[in-house]
């Protein structure tokens, strides 16, 4: 059973994935990747796996974003 919310979230996910690959500014790519992880956590929860959703929200949207930004601050921001 696919509801309208599922379709919207999956479309946002595809849009985010394409945007991360296409964008030139690396800091913007990291922020978009964090929003990708947040929507992915909601989708994991809707698919019935709250365990993976908690890990995705804590790691994907939190710690990974910080590590990427720390890596960018030590290198160049443009691709």
């Amino acid at each position: 059973m696919i509801t309208l919310l599922d379709v919207l979230l999956l479309l946002f996910l595809i849009f985010c994935a394409v945007a991360v690959a296409r964008i030139r500014d690396l800091l913007s790519a990291v922020i978009i990747f964090a929003s990708y992880s947040l929507v992915m956590a909601i989708i994991w929860q809707m698919l019935g796996s709250p365990d993976v959703a908690i890990t995705e929200a804590a790691l994907g949207a939190g710690v990974t974003t910080f590590l990427f930004i720390a890596a960018i601050s030590r290198t160049r921001r443009e691709e």
Binding site: D51, T55, V63, F66
Partner: peptide, 20 residues
């Protein structure tokens, strides 16, 4: 739901937030 890995990541995120 949860576990050692997810809980540890949440605690670490709180400490990183405090330090930031």
């Amino acid at each position: 739901p949860g576990g050692g890995f997810a809980g540890g990541a949440v605690v670490a995120a709180s400490i990183v937030l405090y330090a930031l």
